[in-house]
Simulated assay, not measured.
Amino acid sequence: MPAYIVDVRRLEQFSAIELYDMLKMRVDVFVVEQECAYPELDGNDLECLHLRLMNGPELLACARLWRPQADANPRIGRVAVSPGHRGKRLGEALMREAIVECEKAYPDESIELSAQAHLQRFYASFGFKPISGEYVEDNIPHVDMLRNAR
Rank of each mutant, 00 (worst) to 15 (best):
V79L: 11
A80P: 00
I17W: 14
P130C: 07
E58Q: 15
H50I: 11
H118W: 06
C48H: 10
A115H: 00
L146Q: 03
S114G: 14
V81T: 12
A98C: 14
I99A: 11
K104S: 10
L59Y: 02
M1S: 15
G127M: 07
E103W: 05
R89E: 11
F122P: 00
L113A: 01
M54Y: 03
H118D: 12
H85F: 15
A70H: 12
A61H: 08
L51H: 05
E134L: 03
P68W: 01
V100A: 09
N73E: 15
Y123C: 04
M145S: 01
H142V: 05
F122L: 02
N55M: 08
Y4Q: 06
P130T: 11
A63R: 01
R78G: 12
S132M: 13
E103A: 12
L23W: 13
E109R: 06
N44A: 09
E109F: 05
E134D: 12
A105S: 15
P39F: 01
R9F: 11
L94D: 00
A105N: 10
A117H: 05
L60K: 02
V100W: 13
Q13M: 13
A63M: 11
Q34I: 13
G56K: 04
C62K: 02
P141V: 02
L11T: 09
C36W: 00
I140M: 08
K24F: 13
F126I: 04
L146D: 00
S132L: 08
E137Q: 05
L53G: 01
R64T: 08
E101Q: 15
V6E: 07
A115Q: 00
N139I: 07
S15A: 12
I5C: 06
A3Q: 14
Q69F: 09
A149L: 01
D144K: 09
Y20L: 14
